[in-house]
């Protein structure tokens, strides 16, 4: 399950390992970390948001581990990814573009790139990719499609999205 956590770390070097170690020890996979250095609290701590995938049943153990390490947990969000779409991109797609694109979407906290297939038929010809995105709800999915569209425009890629389904039930779920 995908988890987003807002944490507070002491503003000292080397604190991040207190977060990363417990997560990876429990088999978790980090998708994104953002340090909010500009939002330092009066307790002299730095807010950090982490997004990672982990087995749901290990969550309690993780919380204990973090607290033992002196990490303050401000919020835990469980993301249920309910909405899914595929986007087709055509043009001069290069791996660095894709990495950046995936990071940007994974970093939103409400969506992730689930799958990506790339086809590069010729070195100098256009390539194409299908990107599968999942998000917590229809609105979030729309937002992540918007991000991808902007990236595509910036990189001059042809952006092809699915015909939107009419009257399909949507539901946002971001349990706290």
């Amino acid at each position: 399950m995908r988890i987003s956590m807002d944490l507070e770390l002491q503003d000292r070097p080397g604190q991040l390992k207190h977060v990363l170690t417990p997560i990876s020890d429990l088999g978790g996979n980090i998708a994104s970390i953002v340090h909010h250095h500009d939002k330092k609290t009066f307790r002299n701590t730095v807010p950090v948001s982490v997004i990672f995938d982990i087995e749901e049943q290990t969550l309690e153990e993780l919380q204990e581990g973090l607290e033992k390490n002196g990490v303050a947990i401000v919020r835990i969000g469980k993301m249920r990814l309910r909405a899914r779409t595929h986007i087709l991109l055509i043009g001069h797609i290069i791996h660095t573009n894709l990495r950046e694109t995936i990071d940007e979407i994974d970093g939103t906290g409400f969506a992730e790139v689930q799958d990506l297939s790339l086809s590069m038929p010729a070195i100098d010809g256009p390539s194409s990719a299908v990107i599968t995105i999942m998000a917590t709800g229809d609105e979030e999915l729309k937002k992540s499609i918007g991000i991808l569209r902007q990236i595509a425009e910036r990189k001059d890629l042809l952006f092809i999205e699915p015909l939107d389904e009419r009257g399909s039930p949507g539901g946002v779920s971001n349990e706290e």
Binding site: H86, L88, S127, I160
Partner: peptide
Amino acid sequence: DRITQDALQLARQRGFAV
């Protein structure tokens, strides 16, 4: 005019036509 044949194949593998 920018659509390529292999993009259509990728889409088809996912169950889509363009």
